[in-house]
Amino acid sequence: MSVPRASRVYLDHAATTPMVPAAVEAMTRELTRVGNASALHGSGRAARRVVEDSRELIADRVGARPAELIFTSGGTESDNLAVKGGYWSRRDGRRNRVVVSAVEHHAVLDSASWLAAAEGAELDLLPVDVMGRLDLAAAERLVDERTAVVSVMAANNEVGTRQPVAEVARLATAVGAVSHSDAVQAVGHVPLDFAASGLDLMTFTGHKLGGPYGVGALLARRSTALTAVQHGGGQERDVRSGTLDVAAIAAFAAAVEVAVAGLVAEEARLRALRAELVDGVLAAVPGARLNGTLAAADSLPGVTNLGFADCAADSVLMLLDAAGIDCSAGSACSAGVAQPSHVLTAMGVEETAARSALRFSLGHSSSRADVRALLAALPEAVSRARAAAAFV
């Protein structure tokens, strides 16, 4: 029998986090109104005001100009537009390389792989160290005058490691390549300033910071050319056609405002909670291992990846699920076959160990009670999973 949703412990905020009340209120308000933001009549102009006020607020909070913010349906679309649109805008007979880190989200990795397979791009993956940090020396070697686009995420979605995106932007600028960063996990959780970063493009989304699903943004400097991926009405600088979701955009703006306003205090609170979680797990579960780093300068405040030797992560996940605790396995699933995490294997984690990893991610609704519930349930779950694995 499953545990009722209302009584569950939610430790999967890196997948999606609950909407904050201000975002729910903003979205509910706009859902009661009518008006296409591209229409010229009064209702359309009122909708457009909501969109542009939201654009100004969001841009201000992330260190961008309003004209640099392109609304999209979320992180995946923004990443596709950045990687493909950036590549097509720079590609010529001499410049046909795409350089991305080996630990990117699949929205970036798969876009880059598609360009290699379908468009003849030359793809290079940048290595990382055992903590998941970018090898800058390798980046300096691989980013050259043949490079069209470089994409390195601001912070990793599986292990929480932050990357030196300003240095990546500097390397790209020096050779005339487009620089992009997937900042989906970072915006609203750690300080970010688009103007100061030197990046040409940056991705983020609503549902990772207390807003709704289905809305996100791509920041694009006005001087950065982008080739459209989808075509239609010419909305959003003629690079992202489609009717704007006014209610979702209003909620997105409300969530960004709440997240950025409370960022300093919330970051400190989550780092303390995460330290309690990690210390507790390492003390209570023999053979538990931290993947990544807890250093504040190099990590997100709420993301923890832990490996449990001699058992399968999926088994532990399901036992925790039965106990009312939501978390995430550190693996992807392709065609119904579990695969070891590409992030962990890029970090040098052996395949069997990579298959034992779980991600516990904290967010604005997380509490010490959630951590204590995990610490109470996890030792037995791991013990049972290990016992089951011994008979396989």
Rank of each mutant, 00 (worst) to 15 (best):
A6M: 06
R8A: 05
L11W: 01
A15T: 14
V20T: 10
E25C: 04
E25N: 07
R33P: 00
G42E: 13
A46K: 10
V50F: 09
V51P: 03
E52Y: 05
L57M: 14
L57K: 12
A59F: 01
E68I: 09
T76Y: 04
N80F: 02
S89Y: 01
V100S: 05
H105Y: 12
V108K: 06
V108P: 06
L109W: 06
D110E: 15
L125M: 15
P127V: 10
L134S: 01
L134C: 07
L136Q: 11
A138M: 11
E140S: 14
A148N: 07
S151F: 02
V152Q: 04
M153L: 15
N156T: 13
V159N: 15
G160A: 06
G160I: 02
V165L: 04
V168R: 01
A169P: 02
T173I: 00
A174W: 03
A177F: 01
H180Y: 08
D182T: 02
A183N: 10
A186I: 00
G188P: 08
F194G: 01
L199F: 04
G214V: 05
V215D: 09
A225Q: 13
V229N: 07
G233H: 12
T243S: 14
A248L: 12
F252W: 02
A255D: 04
A259I: 09
A268L: 12
G280C: 04
R289F: 07
L290G: 08
G292T: 13
A295Y: 02
A297C: 04
D298Q: 12
N305D: 14
C311V: 00
A313Y: 00
D314A: 00
M318W: 12
L319D: 07
G324I: 06
I325P: 02
S331W: 04
A332V: 15
C333P: 00
P340N: 11
A346P: 11
G348I: 10
G363P: 05
R368Q: 13
A369E: 15
A376P: 00
A376Q: 10
A381S: 13
S383G: 13
A389P: 00
A390E: 12
